[in-house]
Design a protein around this nucleic acid. Sequence first.
DNA 1: CTTGACATACTCACTAGTTCGTACATTTTA
DNA 2: TAAAATGTACGAACTAGTGAGTATGTCAAG
Lengths: 242, 242
Amino acid sequence: MRKFDVDNSGVHDARFSENERDATVRAALRMAAKRENGRKNDPQRTQENILDVATEEFTTHGLAGGRVDAIAEKTRTSKRMIYYYFGSKEGLYLAVLERAYRKIRTLEEDLQLSNLPPEQALRVLISTTFDHDETNPDFVRLVSIENIHHAAHMLRSEAIRDLNVSVIETIAAILARGVAAGVFVRTADPIDIHMLISAFCFFRVSNRYTFGTIFRRDLSEPATMERHKGMIADAVISYLKS
Amino acid sequence: MRKFDVDNSGVHDARFSENERDATVRAALRMAAKRENGRKNDPQRTQENILDVATEEFTTHGLAGGRVDAIAEKTRTSKRMIYYYFGSKEGLYLAVLERAYRKIRTLEEDLQLSNLPPEQALRVLISTTFDHDETNPDFVRLVSIENIHHAAHMLRSEAIRDLNVSVIETIAAILARGVAAGVFVRTADPIDIHMLISAFCFFRVSNRYTFGTIFRRDLSEPATMERHKGMIADAVISYLKS
DNA sequence: CTTGACATACTCACTAGTTCGTACATTTTA
DNA sequence: TAAAATGTACGAACTAGTGAGTATGTCAAG
């Protein structure tokens, strides 16, 4: 039997209150002791398990292509539980999407860029964005899927919308400092710059298969990755300096 | 009897060979005359009609999300005809994909760039790519969908694979001329440059909805478009000059 | 510290509706 | 009249979702 680690750090913040979490942690410890005999009630683990499997299913087959039955089969639990916890296929998909976004927020949060010189700060930011997309293909695919569906589910989730805004502020600050210091000569819109960076990093992952097929090039090769990382950074910076 | 061949050598070639096109044009004219009374056999028009509707359906709902019955209802004809001509839902999807690619090839074919100075040639090429993605959101969406399906259908179609290669040759020539003339100082890989350009142009369209939702910005606004077009061109050129 | 009532977590089997695909009949064209 | 093109109706399989009952854990009262 497979064991699932119940690590999930920030995940339950939204769904469970502090009190409830304590209760659940205690419960989990109790559970851990007598794991091998018959049924155990472990809602947290069950939900995480469902979300893990659902993420895999939706990212490989899309929302419409993903099968609830297929998800159910791969979980430790049953289809009935999926509906018990998430209400519907769409509800499950939304939960998957939100969890993916939440996971990212924690990563993006602290990057001490304000004490670095502007150009270096920007390079670090670009490198971070690049690595982020590279190491989170699931997230990239979910966003692609969302776009096919006209971002319909995203619209319903404020949690997701009020995200990325901090990145823009970070970029705006770097650009302002750069111009003030005379390192950058161009005054650019921070959202545009974010898009220039994000487009390249995202595309490398989202279009990996078609691009790879057409040009017979493996974009996940380390050497290619490093070259691309350098290229996007140089392109953005030379743009701001020209 | 079914017209659809398993190896589909017959269907697509026949539909687009020069000889038959003339024949069909003549037929179409004949048809046009007596359009209002009862059923007319017009296979070409029927197929085109199905492909138009199917493109719309697949680009809005994806491959799995697209419904054959929905397509059939919106056509001038019946579901039976879809299977008669395309064999299966996947066959139809593949035909849609191939037609989209074919449409693009004709557009990309002749761009007389070799007699323009390198920098200007590159600007024209970038502008063309930009406009292309902008005016062909269907194509962009189909490619996105293909990536979700790991480019599985693209692999089966050589027609599609042997495309874009000409763009690379064009870029390679421009870069070589630029370096020779001393306008560009950096020797870059043409495929990388193509990716830098394509990523931005593609992303603007493919991620229009999520990006628009998060940053509350309409990417299809003319002013925004022009600014972006200038930005990607400047970024690429300043990169090559640095 | 036991009991039993209650809430939560969970199981099993089932269904209503959808969806791709086809058998069969018919009409048009060459 | 043969072959190609088309319309109608239907079915088998799949798929999202549910009804109804069971197990487990909690907690308060005896």
